[in-house]
């Protein structure tokens, strides 16, 4: 995935100002940043959900905005803060995704059953996704992104609201996917997860890319937490103010 000079304004606010990013194939790429840094906006522009004011996004050699069909066919997306067709059951939702991707019905059936079983969502479970818990919604969203075996996964906050057991399961799935040759780009503000998983890291704040590189390059001798706080700025300790507490 390669982003070149992406810019996005919302009304008068500059949400993303000129982000350029190279994600090497086969890497496990973590996009870090505090809330409101522009991570979701950047990833939305990268996968064709949001039209950038300037710049271009190239996925596996296809420009998302010039050759959308080819680019989108190779990418699996888990958007954050976006609803799914949640009045379908989990199985129905997967079938919908599979058929929209143009997959044959029997392949869809078999893969959907596999995913539902592995993610412990139950292939015969007729509960509507709208009644799922937050963690289950993340899992079914991930299943939808994986169903067509894409070569690139773009995941926005995949670990938010997920319980520790499911998070471990998702980590394992993603590890296996990367070691099988896939590329994962995901955003998070949970530093521990990023430190444990990623081969490459980028740090964003205020719509600008502050640092980018392999984990060891970015981290150096320090912990990722220290680097992050130093890059993003902001206070992490109190002085004498809250003495009454």
């Amino acid at each position: 995935m390669s982003l070149r000079g992406l810019v996005k304004h919302f009304d008068t606010r500059l949400a993303v100002s000129g982000v350029s990013l190279e994600v090497p194939a086969g890497s496990f790429f973590g996009l870090l940043g505090p809330n409101g840094a522009g991570k979701t906006t950047t990833l939305s522009m990268a996968v064709g959900l949001l039209r950038p004011d300037q710049g271009e996004a190239v996925l596996l050699g296809y420009d998302v905005w010039r050759a959308p069909a080819e680019a989108k066919a190779l990418v699996g997306v888990l958007p954050d803060g976006v609803r799914m067709f949640d009045r379908l059951s989990g199985a129905e939702l997967l079938a919908y995704h599979g058929l929209l991707r143009g997959m044959p019905a029997d392949v869809v059936d078999q893969r959907a059953r596999d995913l539902l079983d592995v993610l412990e969502l139950g292939s015969g479970n007729r509960t509507l996704v709208v009644d799922y818990s937050a963690g289950m919604k993340k899992k079914i969203g991930l299943a939808c992104a994986l169903l067509h075996a894409p070569r690139l996964l773009v995941l926005d906050e995949p670990f938010e609201a997920v319980d520790p057991v499911s998070a471990a399961l998702i980590r394992d799935i993603l590890h296996r996917y990367v070691s099988g040759g896939g590329t994962v780009v995901f955003s998070s503000h949970v530093l521990e997860v990023v430190e444990r998983l990623c081969s490459h890291v980028a740090i964003m704040s205020d719509g600008v890319l502050r640092m980018c590189g392999t984990l060891t390059e970015v981290r150096g001798e320090r912990s990722l937490q220290d680097v992050f706080v130093q890059v993003v700025g902001g206070r992490v300790a109190t002085g004498s103010e809250l003495a009454w507490l």
């Binding site: 058929l99 959907a112 007729r126 509507l128």
Partner: peptide, 14 residues
């Protein structure tokens, strides 16, 4: 509708 189980394949369900 938890509890009610459906034995059909996902595509059939949709």
């Amino acid at each position: 509708r938890a509890g009610t189980s459906d034995g059909r394949g996902p595509v059939e369900q949709l």
